[in-house]
């Protein structure tokens, strides 16, 4: 692991007393945590612990009944998802959610959406502003294609790509948005060891080159212990532990959540 770029002890995202329930099911209970600028924070926990629900609250996909979320000091718990994206939070999904009929390159171009300035009339006439903008953003897209070794699949329609490559396109689409905070929901699920190593390398590349703060959910403990600066453990909607990988490995509450008690 490298040294954290621009690692300050400043919180980029603060969650305070967050509670979320679906009818009678309490998905999240009184969760408070901070994501620090420039860190890689892993959220782990057994199945159904509320990890994805927590991520969904962070980007406005779920509305928590109680509690507050603030991003760089700005309250975002009432904001619609697309506004949160404009503030600089991007994410990937556990089940891949791509624009199936577009090529990999166009998926990434669509990921640049928030950086486009031209209006409908510019687009309709095309000459001038819209054309310049297409080229300018195409360059940003090509940088990511280069970084993730996607040259060969650039023009392929993503619906027909194999699983691992679709996962990569989705990561690319989130990164090309140039977010300040990147939320990754099980980026390595269903991958073999080699693909996981590639993915871990790409995630660390983003973190190192772009200084993006990363929150990731992952089940592979080897990966989590290797790349995370800090770990938050959830169990049945509660936060049961928080700390460095070393602290988490020896935490009795975590061990009992994963392995049961004697």
């Amino acid at each position: 692991m490298g040294t954290a770029p621009a690692s300050k002890d400043v919180a980029i995202l603060e969650i305070a007393n967050l509670s979320l329930s679906f009818g009678g099911v309490q998905a999240l209970m009184d969760i408070s945590l901070e994501v620090k600028q420039g860190e890689v924070l892993a959220i782990i926990g057994p199945n159904g612990a509320g990890k994805t629900s927590l991520l969904n609250c962070m980007n406005g996909f779920y509305r928590a009944q109680q509690g507050d979320i603030s991003f760089q000091g700005k309250g975002i718990s009432k904001m619609p998802s697309h506004k949160i994206a404009e503030l600089g939070i991007a994410r990937t999904f556990q089940q891949i959610e791509l624009y199936t009929h577009l090529s990999a390159q166009d998926n990434l171009m669509a990921g640049r959406h928030i950086h486009f300035k031209s209006g409908m009339l510019d687009g309709a006439l095309y000459f001038g502003k819209a054309h310049r903008e297409e080229i300018e953003h195409r360059k940003a897209v090509e940088n990511i294609i280069d970084l993730f070794d996607m040259e060969a699949i650039r023009k392929k329609v993503v619906g027909f790509l194999p699983y691992g490559q679709r996962k990569l396109v989705e990561l690319g689409r989130a990164v090309v948005m140039e977010p300040k905070l990147l939320l990754l929901d099980e980026p390595m699920a269903g991958m073999n060891v080699e693909e996981k190593e590639d993915m871990a390398r790409f995630i660390l590349d983003i973190w190192e080159l772009k200084g993006t703060t990363i929150v990731l959910i992952e089940h592979d403990m080897g990966v989590v212990m290797d790349i995370a600066d800090r770990i938050v453990v959830l169990d049945f909607g509660r936060k049961i532990a928080e700390g460095t990988p070393q602290e988490i490995q020896t935490n009795p509450a975590v061990i009992s959540a994963y392995l049961g008690q004697e």
Binding site: F61, H82, E97, Y99, G111, H113, R173
Partner: peptide
Amino acid sequence: LAAEVMGIS
């Protein structure tokens, strides 16, 4: 769903 999350209103 993805469109909204990627900043498309």
